[in-house]
Design a protein around this nucleic acid. Structure first.
Lengths: 157, 157
DNA sequence: TCAATTTAAATGACATGTCATCTATTATCA
DNA sequence: TGATAATAGATGACATGTCATTTAAATTGA
């Protein structure tokens, strides 16, 4: 078991969160690369799968990786052919975003990758510890702006 | 207390880590902005303060936000006048990086900001919970490549 | 009805992360 | 001694995050 620096618990926590996020992102990136997808793209495709159709603003509100109108990210996914973008008939300021057929297929691949990585994590860390971490982290975030996004995503209730 | 999605603890954990990191980054960014520094720059300046002089490679190994030779980040800090860069006399492939006088002053400001944000966090979360989170997260990372960086930084031992 | 205001999305500019490639320097080895 | 290999750092190109600004469309209110 590691010894941590307990003289500065808040600073230690900050860097451990940063390190955990970076390590996780690196692991996901490594495997997403094989199917030609970045982490941000994967999140978009999955959010669309579960909530389509969405406007850009609605999508932006549901992304944890993205805080504002993700025009460029979406335009790249449209160019790649995984997302369809249509101007709304009711209000042409809005666009309606949804997955194409290829996008739906790509999401299946993404889900397989994610599920296998989740399984690895669940096998290396006792579930009670994961659940406890989840409870503490969600308490920490409960009054923060991002908790709204987490509720939209069903990550916290 | 929040209810979390316990049907997928690993996925929930992933997004909670992502959300915690993003929320924390946003808070630091907000306050660093007032002294004209980005989060990555702040980390560089603090690492140099505690370990100077460093080569680019050594610095890169110690950064949690950065994984490789951070040439451009450093060049911007040199341009801004906070970091001094000299070619090594012994081996001119290497550069020696250290803080300028202005850089040292900027680090004092950075430290004040960080300490006040750390204090806020320590006041809103019981220390035992923070320490427990730190222990669990460091255990999680102990076999990961990034644990080397964390040890160099004294965050884990 | 029309001016003013608000809203959705796009874009410019900048910062940074990532990967590949390049240049310059040093080390190694026959 | 010189060719080859390894190393440190820089740069090109691309992706994405952030903030400000712009454009186009819809809403509001007099």
């Amino acid at each position: 078991m590691n010894q941590i620096n307990n003289s500065k618990p808040a600073e230690t926590f900050r860097y451990l969160i940063l390190a955990t996020e970076r390590q996780g992102r690196s692991i996901f990136k490594e495997t997403f690369k094989k199917i030609g997808v970045t982490g941000a793209q994967a999140e978009v495709l999955k959010v669309l799968q579960e909530n389509e159709p969405l406007s850009l603003k609605e999508l932006g509100a549901m992304l944890i990786c993205e805080t504002e109108s993700p025009s460029r990210l979406i335009n790249r996914l449209v160019t790649t052919g995984w997302v369809q973008k249509e101007t709304s008939e009711k209000d042409s300021r809005f666009v309606n975003l949804s997955l194409s057929k290829e996008g739906k297929e790509k999401v299946l691949q993404i889900t397989k990758i994610e599920d296998s990585l989740y399984k690895m994590l669940e096998q290396s860390v006792p579930i009670e510890i994961l659940e406890n971490l989840n409870m503490q982290l969600s308490n920490l975030l409960s009054e923060q702006p991002i908790s709204h996004t987490l509720r939209l995503r069903g990550i916290i209730k």
